[in-house]
């Protein structure tokens, strides 16, 4: 065999350096996204008892949906349960920073909003939270994307993104789909 061992070792080392370089580029891209665009995974270790979720606090039935607080923060609270979302439709303004908060009283669920990077698991025991800005208006699909039982396939909701001037909170700061 004509190839000397020296050459083999050197070529392998060169290739190993290239491999490490590829990996470094990926990590630099990640750090850049984190530092410049503030992109984080939807981590939010906020414990909440799934068994008493409906009894009090922000995830009781009448408190769900979109609400604008006194300081202008837009927050939508949604419960994922076997096999529906409550509410099944939320209104949110375009081009404005909004927060989606999810909780479940029963099993694991998850959501994505079609055509956006809104995506989170919903795990019993934790509040899931996504911060985002919607840029396109219209009705977007928000299906349950994690197996939650036999009714999983039909579990879906709508995110209605409206232009900022059509986003009109009522006296309590609430906006609902059927109110429009």
């Amino acid at each position: 065999m004509p190839i000397s061992e020296e050459i083999i070792v050197r070529s392998e080392l060169r290739w190993a350096a290239i491999s490490v370089g590829v990996v470094s580029v990926i990590m630099i891209a990640l750090i850049y996204a984190g530092l410049v665009h503030h992109i984080n995974p939807p981590s939010n270790i906020e414990r909440i008892d799934p068994k008493t979720l409906h009894l009090g606090g922000e995830f009781t039935e009448a408190n769900l949906g979109t609400r604008v607080s006194g300081d202008g923060q837009v927050t939508s609270r949604i419960v994922a349960t076997q096999f529906t979302f409550q509410p099944r439709c939320v209104v949110l303004p375009a081009n404005r920073r909004v927060t989606l908060r999810f909780a479940t009283p029963d099993v694991i669920h998850g959501i994505l909003v079609s055509g956006t990077n809104v995506n989170t698991m919903i795990v019993p025991g934790y509040v899931s939270q996504v911060h985002t800005v919607f840029t396109r208006t219209g009705d977007l699909l928000m299906p349950c994307h994690e197996y939650c039982g036999l009714g999983h396939s039909e579990m879906s909701a709508t995110v209605r993104v409206v232009p900022p001037d059509e986003f009109k909170p009522d006296a309590e700061g609430r906006v609902a789909c059927d109110a429009r």
């Binding site: 409906h54 923060q73 927050t75």
Partner: peptide, 24 residues
């Protein structure tokens, strides 16, 4: 709780539940 890149939303919820049964 919360993201290092965003403020936490606040709530002043006081709402009637659909049922008062809680399983344990």
């Amino acid at each position: 709780p919360g993201s290092p890149a965003a403020r936490q939303p606040t709530t002043n919820a006081k709402a009637q539940p659909a049922t008062r049964v809680a399983w344990s």
